[in-house]
């Protein structure tokens, strides 16, 4: 590689930009800063309070990540977290991040850019994207503290649409899909819409649609069909799973988290760690100053009219299938 790799020891990729003929990676100095904020970008924003991080950044090509992976590999992923959005995934990630032995990457933008690189001006092969994804996760998963042992990645909700690629990149890594009654998910998006529910943000090809399908589609239908696509992708991943996996419904949170840790990810918890985890489980993940509250009843009441009809039509049948699969999973132990 063109750069001395030792110069990047405390630096982390924060953005990936397309350029003519490839992609550039922008690196920011994080030092010992752990990823403990609700989202990866929150941690980066925290570092951007220091002027140094605006003025001094390294830059490499995306291809150089594979070389870095070989020179200084990060922790291999212990678990992958997929979700439907607005269903408690941040609570789960924050609970895992509460233990100093876990590195938790929560919706890291550079991973999303790499996963979606296919739909830009460039058309890299699947092999290239797998190499980039592995390289990016490896570089982001480098240990910076002696206590760090495990790496968890909570992907953006839409990442599951690329399950075959992720499965090839990380075969056999335990994963879970977290979901929730779609009425409650949609009610949350109506209050503050997630990026993927805004028409045009996700490439239609990612959803398996042609661009002609979009014009004239009511916003409520668009949102419901995106959520349906996520559930459908989860069902496909579940049915084709080759390693440890779990379906988790929002109502199981937060109580299920310690058992996921031991049964799905195969990690033991000390009494002290369990206490730390329980404290994190009791907080509002996106605003840890507030206690966690189940707002299902309020959200059930909030969703009415065309949005509710769209959810019942497009998402409810898939949610029912997920629930059946989850019950079967529990019955079979």
């Amino acid at each position: 590689m063109t750069m001395d790799a030792t110069l990047l020891a405390e630096w982390f990729p924060v953005r990936v930009h397309a350029r003519e003929g490839g992609f550039d990676v922008e690196w920011c100095h994080l030092g010992g800063q752990r990823f403990t904020e609700p989202f990866f970008d929150d941690t980066i924003q925290r570092r951007l309070r220091y002027p140094f991080n605006w003025l001094f950044r390294h830059q490499t090509s995306l291809d150089e990540l594979a070389e870095l992976e070989a020179l200084s590999p990060g922790l291999p992923p212990t678990g992958l977290i997929f979700h439907m959005s607005r269903c408690g995934s941040t609570l789960l990630a924050q609970t895992l991040a509460a233990l100093p032995r876990n590195i938790v990457l929560s919706e890291p933008a550079p991973v999303d850019t790499v996963l979606r690189a296919r739909w830009g001006e460039e058309t890299p092969t699947e092999e290239q994207r797998i190499a980039w994804l592995r390289g990016m996760v490896s570089v982001l998963g480098r240990k910076r503290h002696a206590t760090e042992r495990h790496l968890f990645i909570k992907f953006d909700a839409w990442a599951l649409l690329q399950w075959p690629l992720i499965q090839r990149a990380f075969p056999g890594v335990p994963w879970l899909f977290l979901y929730r009654d779609p009425v409650e998910v949609m009610a949350s998006h109506l209050r503050h819409s997630g990026a993927h529910l805004v028409p045009g943000v996700l490439e239609p090809a990612l959803l398996g649609w042609s661009p002609e399908q979009l014009p004239g589609m009511p916003r409520e239908e668009y949102g419901a069909r995106v959520l349906a696509s996520l559930c459908e992708a989860a069902l496909g991943a579940w049915e084709s799973r080759r390693g440890p996996a779990r379906l988790v419904e929002y109502r199981e949170l937060p109580a299920v988290i310690p058992s996921l840790y031991s049964e799905l990810f195969g990690l033991e918890l000390s009494g002290e760690e369990l206490a730390v985890m329980r404290e994190a489980m009791g907080k509002d993940a996106k605003n840890p100053a507030l206690p966690f509250e189940d707002d299902s009843a309020m959200k059930q009441r909030a969703l009415t009219g065309p949005a509710r009809e769209a959810v019942e039509r497009w998402v409810r049948p898939l949610y029912a299938r997920l629930e059946t699969a989850r019950r079967d999973m529990r019955r079979m132990g």
């Binding site: 110069l7 100095h29 002027p51 140094f52 001094f56």
Partner: peptide
């Protein structure tokens, strides 16, 4: 970018004017 010692002198200064 080539000198970690120089980075160490600059990176923890939060006050814009002092930086």
């Amino acid at each position: 970018l080539r000198e970690p010692e120089l980075q160490a002198r600059l990176r923890d200064v939060q006050d814009p004017a002092a930086f």
